[in-house]
Simulated scan of single mutants.
Amino acid sequence: MHNILITGAASGIGAATARLFHRQGWSVGLLDIDRGALTALAEELGGAWHQVLDVTDADAVREALEAFCTQHDGQLRLLFNGAGILRCGPFAELALEEHVRTLNINVLGLLNLCHAAFPYLKRTANAQVINMSSASAQYGVPSMASYSASKFAVRGLTEALELEWREHGIRVGDLMPLFVATPMVASQRFTPPVMRRLSVKLNAEQIAQAAWQQAHGPTVHRPVGWQFRLLYLSGQLAPAWMNRLVMGWLSRA
C-alpha cells in the first residue's frame, strides 16, 4: 500500500488531497496545527494517522516523520507539503511580524519537512515530494509580496532538489495554481487587484486532483487551471519586460 504524509491537512487543499488519496486506497498521514479540525478529519477517514504539528519546529517535524514512517517499515512514498499561510495587503502596511511569519511557515516549514523526510524517501521505491507553490512564483505580485517571495523560494527549492535527488530515485515537483477557494483565501481582509481581476475560479478538489496527477505523471512544475496554464506558457516564451507589463496591468486598482 502506498503512503502519503500531508502537511496543512486539516482544511482546504490538504484536506481535499487527504480525502482523494484515501479513497484511492493510500495510507494517509495528517499533520496540522489545528487540533480540532485535524481530529475530525482523521475520524472521517476511518481513524487515519494524525499528529498536531507546527512545521517551523524542526525537532517536532523529525519526531513526526519518524512516528509515521516507523509504521510503514521506514518508508515514505509521497510527502505533500501543503502547509502555508497568506496575508494580503500593501507591503508597508502589514506588520513586519506578518511577513516573517509567512516566510517561516511557507519556506522554513517546507525545508524542515524535506530535510527530515529525506532518509525515508531515499529507501522507498518511486518516492516523491509535491510542494504547494503558486502562480505567485511566476512574477512578484503586489499586495502579496512576502507570500510571492515565499513561493519563489518554494519554486527554487523544488527545481534544485529535483536535480539533486534524482540519483536517489526521488522525484520532486510542485503545483502552481492561481487563487483557490479555501478558508485561507476567504479569510483575507484585503483583496489584491490581481485577485479581483482574475477572480477565484479553482476549488480545493481541483488542486487535489492535480496532486493525484502529479503522483502518477510527475513534472517539475504543474500549472493548475486554464488561466494560469496560458499565463505560464506565455511567461516561458515572452521577454521579461512583457511579463512585467502583464503583471502591472493585472495589479492595477
Rank of each mutant, 00 (worst) to 15 (best):
I6E: 02
T7N: 09
G8C: 09
R23I: 06
Q24M: 15
G25W: 06
S27T: 09
V28M: 01
A37H: 10
T39C: 15
L41Y: 02
E44G: 13
G46E: 11
G46N: 08
G47I: 06
L53C: 02
D57G: 06
D59S: 12
A60L: 09
R62V: 08
A64I: 07
T70K: 15
Q71T: 13
Q75S: 13
L76D: 10
A83H: 06
G84V: 06
G89D: 12
E93G: 10
H99P: 01
T102S: 12
T102N: 08
N104W: 13
N112P: 04
T124Y: 13
V129A: 00
V129H: 04
S133C: 10
A137D: 05
Q138S: 14
Y139W: 12
S150I: 05
K151S: 03
A153I: 02
A160T: 11
A160R: 06
H168L: 13
H168T: 07
G169Q: 04
V172I: 05
V180M: 03
T182I: 09
V185D: 08
S187E: 15
Q188F: 14
R189H: 15
R189D: 14
P192K: 11
P193Y: 07
M195D: 05
S199Y: 09
K201V: 11
A204C: 03
I207G: 00
A210P: 04
W212C: 03
Q213T: 11
A215W: 01
V220T: 04
R222T: 10
V224Y: 01
V224K: 00
G235T: 00
Q236I: 02
L237Y: 07
L237M: 10
W241K: 09
L250G: 00
A253T: 07
